[in-house]
Write a protein that binds this DNA or RNA. Structure first.
Lengths: 151, 151
DNA sequence: CTATGATCGTTTCAAATGAAACGATTGTCA
DNA sequence: TGACAATCGTTTCATTTGAAACGATCATAG
């Protein structure tokens, strides 16, 4: 029995977003972990380094929207595995220039098609206009959140 | 400098989804925490109990898409705070019927308008058709995930 | 030059998380 | 009936998480 003004969590947008997104993330994490032995934070670092290296940890934070602790840990793991390389900044010793190593780039180039394939699989059956609408929604919601968070 | 076949994480759908959703969740969590002293898992339990009580823990798991450990902890906290009540099932002693207490319902009824307001704020500026498209996307992606997870 | 404050990245610490083990209850089948 | 499997909810354990403290480096102002 539903009461007056009742509230259906299952059609509540933030809830739906959260559930679906977490499922998507888990699907990706399973693939990355299984095929490459890499976590999502690590994969994100590789992804931005693959496209924009060299980057400092701070720049990776901005580009991946991860906090600096998470980035620091992912970077430490990737360094230990030899997938990325570090080099001190010439003039500012606080900064650390990070790049993909040879084996890191190999993984990067192997992962990209997999990532795109999973994305295609997950969005199979969606029209181009629906996907475009989704991007609009994300743009707009992101702008609202900028406002909300600025207080 | 982008390389050929380069990959832009920032326009990668699963990534965008994850970032935006986490921001939305944080915005909600801040409100719930600040105004009602309640976490997101706790709020979800209250939400489904407000609409569908009485429910067992297992039914709450299904309706909220949370694992049973998380539900168990949220239920324990809400019991301790007197916001929900438990009662043994008549014939199956393993099941526990959970309902909102009087004070729990009061919180439920106070939270609903707040939740709707935040949702409205976050989606402000979006057309009805964009929101409809978003729901379609979530439906479709959910169906794909059902397939993917079934293996 | 020195002092003060800002920035960068690491580490610490407590809380949250989920997989798995667990005890308790119920269902099934010989 | 009795043994065995299945289900429910709790608890344990190792891992992940993010906020805050921290040391190190740099910028700014006196």
């Amino acid at each position: 029995m539903k009461r007056s003004g009742s509230f259906d969590l299952e059609s509540f947008l933030p809830y739906r977003l959260s559930v679906t997104t977490n499922r998507v993330s888990r699907a990706f994490a399973a693939q990355y972990e299984q095929e490459f032995g890499i976590s999502i934070p690590e994969w994100r670092v590789i992804a931005v380094l693959g496209a924009f290296a060299p980057l400092s940890s701070n720049e990776i934070c901005e580009r991946t929207a991860m906090d600096k602790a998470k980035v620091s840990r992912a970077v430490a793991t990737l360094l230990k595995r030899g997938l990325i390389e570090r080099e001190a900044h010439e003039t500012d010793q606080r900064l650390i220039q990070l790049t993909l190593s040879k084996s890191g780039r190999k993984i990067y180039e192997a992962i990209i098609p997999r990532a795109r394939a999973i994305e295609a699989e997950v969005t199979k059956g969606l029209s181009k206009s629906d996907i475009a609408a989704l991007h609009r929604v994300l743009d707009c919601v992101g702008a609202r959140l900028d406002e909300i968070e600025a207080d």
